[in-house]
Design a protein around this nucleic acid. Structure first.
Lengths: 157, 157
DNA sequence: CTAGATGCAAACAGTTTGCGTCACT
DNA sequence: AGTGACGCAAACTGTTTGCATCTAG
């Protein structure tokens, strides 16, 4: 599970993406990969701290942003900024802009079968599902800062 | 689009669900239904304020919670509390607990076709999609506060 | 040597809570 | 009349920013 990436490999990933391979950055990356299960920035911070007590939470945040912008990792809470609600009328998919976090209703609706209990975490009860397409909205893809940042991910086995 | 629900109908919904039909609550509900497009609590607040300047933001929040708990409206940002990231390895669906907001990785992975440009908002660029099953996790469904609150939704046309 | 990264602390945004007062039922 | 809702303000949580210092390339 806990895959270790040699520093040299990380270095070349960074070079390709255009940023510096620092010790902190390397540890943060390693930690995210090895934690695996959807960590929060806090959790990554706490973990990295064990081996590098001087690390700053702000550094973890900044690096997460960098990795996400370069699509080295994914934000699975693209709408974390604020709650969003909808009246439970006609179901439909959403498009969420990963930068400005605006949510757009789509015409499209992906039908999904109600999941079997065995597909859910033990003891969980299902209520509804969401299908979210994530990317950049028109205005954010015009703002060059976020465009075409994707570095080819390295082959970490 | 902007569907108006008679107060009496709202009253009976409230009675069914076991809470009091106040003027504020009625306006908040109406506003959510008529706004339609995924408003934030702020947006609901600003809108309700136009007709009821004395309304408090806290009241809007409290009522949104009430409505969500009773499944009268849906939270489409079940993971809003904190960012969550994952290393872009094997894709898989998630289960998110609507109460404690924990995220569970599922074995299951729903394959979705890359959406056609015409399905996306104009000018948007697609990067990845998320499939999230929402409900209560084991421990939260044991905590009775959130269980079996669903009021049969009223027929608002 | 220098652009970019780090660490700190302060600022922010969005949300929640406690409590005194008010109003549906 | 009593329980639950409201409004206010203060507290919180998670995130972001500015800036002085450091470091990889």
């Amino acid at each position: 599970m806990s895959k270790t990436i040699p520093f040299e490999e990380f270095q070349s990933l960074c070079r390709r993406a255009g940023f510096i391979a620092t010790h902190q950055r390397y540890l943060i990356f390693q930690t995210i990969v090895s934690l695996g299960d959807n960590p929060t920035p806090e959790e990554v911070f706490e973990r990295v701290r064990r081996s590098l007590p001087g690390i700053s939470l702000a550094t973890v945040y900044k690096n997460i942003d960098t990795f996400v912008d370069h699509r080295i990792i994914r934000d699975i809470s693209p709408n974390y900024g604020s709650r969003r609600i909808e009246s439970a009328s006609t179901p439909h998919d959403h498009f969420v802009c990963r930068v400005c976090r605006r949510v757009f209703d789509l015409e499209k609706h992906t039908e999904l079968a109600r999941p079997a209990n065995t597909d859910l975490p033990h003891g969980a009860s299902f209520e509804y599902h969401l299908v979210e397409f994530v990317g950049l909205c028109r205005s954010c893809s015009h703002a060059s800062r976020f465009r075409d940042k994707a570095a080819r991910p390295m082959a970490h086995n």
